[in-house]
Amino acid sequence: MEFFERLKDYCSILAPSGMEKPMRKRIIEDIKDSGAEWRVDPNGNLIVFKKGRARRDKKLVVAAHMDEVGFMASYIDEEGYVRIENVGGIDRRVVSGRRIMFCGSNLVGVVASKAIHIQTKEEIGKCEPINEMRVDIGCYDRESAEKRVRIGDCATFCPNYEEFGNGLIKSKAIDDRFGCAVMVELINSDLEYDTYFAFDTCEEIGCDGAKEVCYQLNPDIAVILESTTAGDICGTPAEKAACTVHGGAVISHMDNSTVYDKELVKLAMELGKEKGIPCQLKNTVAGGNEARAYQREACGARVLAISAPTRYIHSACSVAAKEDLTAVAAMTKTIIERKF
């Protein structure tokens, strides 16, 4: 299956933190003929071992998370609206006025927004907190709404994968479905060395899955595949962009939760140059990912993050360049071809 076809499928699956099952099932389906061994741990993490042509002295794991940001129904009110809490960090401004889809039922709900004509002067331009927003599911009272949505049900932004612009894609959940897609490709290929692959749960609410997996594997080296915020939008000075779309795979030396392994960062940048893989160093200390868990759990691993520069992550419409995703895949392959 072509990489971007697979990515489209993955991005279109509804799987917020704690609800990764449909994503896990699909991945298992996609790797079942690869010859890899796999197991699902008690909290739903999917751990894969793929034998290479040779053993590696060090234990290396490549990790990506299956979950995405989303919402959970917290209350059904008398007028039939669903009240929500966010699952993972979401800016209230990207929620206001969006459509969301409920997991399992695929019901669509609209985040209500009072018409501009009936807003008070104070309300104009301002978004209420997510937990004060109302989701309209087309019901008129609590009784009928409760037949469609229950407290605890989860939702995500609506599937909307599409190619656009100059070799870009836009979709919900590029974070981190592209990481999953890259790993699935690698698992289905012949590898030089034995490698573990971890499809983690619950990254968006605090890297819970990664903590569990790290304890189980106790790896020496962890390579994290992620989406990272590209701030290269209209009006941002270059030094504050963090990274740029079309700029290649992003190698972080430091973010809000991790200082990365210096040698691995150096190695990645050198390999990029040597093999002609476009890559860039993240120029701002911002964001964070599962590296923090792999660095701190069990005996602690040396960590490297290879990220896709992505605009508007954690929104209904994140944007990434196909060539950057290809660069991340190439860089990952190059790294795991080393013996260490």
Binding site: D91, R93, V94, S96, G97, R98, S113, K114, A115, I116, Q119, I124, G125, K126, C127, N160, K170, Y312, S315, A316, C317
Partner: peptide
């Protein structure tokens, strides 16, 4: 006139 608050990350 639309409600500008809804526009971030909309298509």
């Amino acid at each position: 006139r639309t409600a500008e608050k809804n526009l971030s990350a909309s298509e």
